[in-house]
Design a protein around this nucleic acid. Structure first.
Lengths: 336, 336
DNA sequence: CTGAAAGCGCTTACAG
DNA sequence: CTGAAAGCGCTTACAG
C-alpha cells in the first residue's frame, strides 16, 4: 500500500505550470494570478501533495525547527513552557526540538555548537539563559534566540517576569495579616529569579520599617528537601518565625512537612507561602498560598518574538516583562 | 564573524579523496583503509566539518527524527517518558519531536498523516496508542512505531506494564493490614490501564474470598477532582471503607483532601493508596503508599525497540512487559 | 578499498 | 505574472 509520495514536479505537470509557480503558491508569495493559484491547489489536492521538508530545508538553508534549551528537565515549569511554545510553533509550521542540558557542564558549548545547524533559533530558559559562555557563543555565531531570564544580555530579546514585585506583594500580604517575624527561604543561587525574589522580600520589609534579620533567612536550592532542612533550621531558632515564605512551591511543601514534624498547625501556628503555583500547590494540604507566574504566556511570547526575528521582522519591542499575581489559599492566616 | 560552513566537498578536497569516501567515514561504513579514514578525520577536524542533516535527509529519505504522540500533556508521566526517550535518541543521533494530541479528536488522522513524512517513526503513548483509527493509519501506511499500551494491536511492537499484578499486590497488602472494606477508584475509562488495575483489585479480593461490593467502587477520570468526588461518595456511605485504593496518585491526593474534609485521620481512620509514584506522592502529607512504575525504563525500551526497527534489525523480541513495584509509605496502616 | 555520475525535491537569482 | 537553469550537500547504485 506504500504509494509513492508526489512531488512538486507532479503537481506542476498536472496543473500545467512550472515548479516555480507551485513553489510560489505553497510559500504564499504574491504575484500569482488567482486562476493559476486555484489550478495549483486543485492539482495538489488531487495528488495529496505535501512539500518535502528536507528538500525545502536544503535549498533554503532553513530547518523550520526551533530548539528549546533548559536545565531542570522534570519540572512542571518546563512542561508548561513546552506547551505554550508548541502552540505558537504550530501556527507557524515550525517544530520544536527539546534539548535539556546542564548549565554548568563543561561541554555545553560544543553540544550547542553542534546543534546550531539543526535549528533556526533557540528559546533559552533559566538558568541556562544566564550562562555567559553560552550567550557569548550565540552572540559570536549570530544565532537567533530569545532568552527567558531576569537579566538582559547584549541586544538579545528577552522575556522576564516581575518576580521582585510579586515577592514584595506576598511579603506585604503576610505583614498585613499581622506577622512580624516572616521567614524567607532563598532559591537556587544560580537563578536570577532567586535574587529578585529575595530583593522583593527585603523591599517590602524596608517599606514597613521592619529590620532584615539574617536569622530568618535560609539558603535553599529550589527542591523540596532543601525547603525541609531550611524550615527545620528556621523553626528550631529561639525566636521562630510565624510565617515562612519559600521561593518556590516544592520548597514550601518542604516547609509544610517540617511544620508537621514540629507539630505546628498550618496556618494557625505557622503560615506558609510558596511561589509558582505549580500543580503541587493546589494539591497540598492545606492548599498553598503562592504566586502565579504567567508561564504559558511567557512561552507564547518568547516563541512569537523568535518567529518574528526569523522572518526578519523585528518590528515592535522584543523585550517583555510580565507580571505575576498572588494566589491566596488556606496555608496563610493571621498569627496566633 | 559568520564563517561559511564547510561541506563534504571541502573535506574531500583537503583530504585528497572523493566525497563518497568522506561519506563512508561519517556513516561508519566498513571498507575504508585506516590511513584513509585518518586523513578524512583530520581534514574534517581542521575544517570543523559537520554533515548537513537536510542534505542527508533528502538523499537518504530519512529524517533522523522520531515523533512522540501523547495526550495528557502536562502530566509527570509524560515528562518522565520524554526524558528516557531523549537519552536513547541521543545515543543514536536522533532528535525527538514531541506532539501532544487528543485521542478523540476528529482530525487526529489528518494531523498525524501530515506528520508522517517528518519523522522516521513514532512512539505512541496511552491512550493515543489505543485509538483504533490511528493504529489503522499506521498499519496501512506501513509507518514504523512502538506502542506503549496494555493491549496489543496486530504485529506492532508494544511495551506494557504489569498493572494488574501491581494492583493485585496493593490490594493484598491492604487486606494483610487487616482491612475488610477496601474502596477502589477506577481510572479514566479510555485507558487500558484502568481496566487492568480494576482487574487486579478484583482478583486479590477473589483469592481472599472477599465479595466484590459495587458500593465500594467508584468511577474516576484520573484527575484530582474526580478522586475527591469519588472519595466523598465512598465516605458518605453507611458502611464506609477503612481503606481506599485510587488508580493513580492525583486521585489519591483527592482522597486525602476528602479525608481532611471528613475529619478522618490518615492512616488511623482511613488508609489511602495511589498508583504511579509521581512526585506528588512523596510530597503528600502523609506521604502516599503507591505503586512505582518503571517509566524511564518503559521509555528507554520503547525507543531502543524503535531504533532497531529503523535499522532493519528487528532481531530479538520487540514486545516487553515490565513489572511495577509497591512503595509503602505512611498513608496506609492497620484499621481502627 | 575507492570513485564518478546521477539524483533526492525543493529554492534562489535571474530573465522576460 | 511566470518560467528555465543552477545548485543546496548529501546518498544511492554502480563500476572498477
Amino acid at each position: 500500500m506504500i504509494t509513492k509520495r508526489s512531488t512538486i514536479n507532479d503537481v506542476a505537470r498536472l496543473a500545467g505550470v512550472s515548479i516555480k509557480t507551485v513553489s510560489r503558491v505553497f510559500n504564499r508569495e504574491p504575484n500569482v494570478r488567482q486562476s493559476t493559484r486555484d489550478k495549483v491547489i486543485a492539482a495538489a489536492e488531487t495528488l495529496n501533495y505535501r512539500p518535502n521538508r528536507s528538500a525545502r530545508q536544503l535549498a533554503s538553508n532553513l530547518t523550520f525547527v526551533i530548539g528549546m534549551l533548559y536545565d531542570n528537565p522534570n519540572s512542571d515549569y518546563v512542561t508548561e513552557v513546552q506547551y505554550g511554545c508548541l502552540q505558537v510553533c504550530r501556527e507557524y509550521g515550525y517544530n520544536l526540538l527539546i534539548h535539556p542540558c546542564q548549565a554548568d557542564s563543561p561541554d555545553l558549548i560544543d553540544e550547542i555548537g553542534g546543534l546550531q545547524h539543526q535549528v533556526d533559533g533557540f528559546i533559552v530558559l533559566q538558568p541556562v539563559s544566564d550562562d555567559q559562555r553560552l550567550n557569548q557563543l550565540l552572540l559570536e555565531n549570530n544565532i537567533a534566540c530569545v532568552r527567558v531570564s531576569q537579566r538582559p544580555f547584549e541586544e538579545f530579546p528577552w522575556i522576564s517576569v516581575g518576580d521582585k514585585e510579586a515577592a514584595d506583594q506576598m511579603t506585604e500580604y503576610l505583614l498585613d495579616l499581622g506577622h512580624r517575624r516572616v521567614g524567607f527561604i532563598i532559591g537556587h543561587p544560580d537563578h536570577g529569579s532567586s535574587h529578585d525574589r529575595l530583593a522583593g522580600y527585603r523591599s517590602a520589609l524596608k517599606r514597613r520599617d521592619i529590620r532584615y534579620d539574617e536569622n530568618l533567612v535560609a539558603q535553599g536550592r529550589f527542591d523540596l528537601e532543601s525547603g525541609l532542612s531550611c524550615a527545620r533550621k528556621l523553626l528550631s531558632s529561639t525566636s521562630r518565625p510565624t510565617a515562612i515564605f519559600a521561593s518556590n512551591d516544592p520548597m514550601a511543601m518542604g516547609v509544610l512537612s517540617a511544620a508537621h514534624e514540629f507539630g505546628l498547625d498550618v496556618p494557625r501556628q505557622l503560615s506558609v507561602a510558596g511561589f509558582d503555583d505549580s500543580p503541587l500547590a493546589r494539591h497540598a494540604w492545606p492548599p498553598l498560598t503562592t504566586v502565579r507566574q504567567p508561564i504559558t504566556e511567557v512561552a507564547r511570547l518568547a516563541t512569537n518574538v523568535l518567529m518574528q526575528q526569523l522572518q526578519g521582522r523585528s518590528e515592535g519591542d522584543s523585550n517583555h516583562r510580565l507580571q505575576a499575581e498572588l494566589v491566596c489559599r488556606a496555608s496563610t492566616g493571621s498569627p496566633g
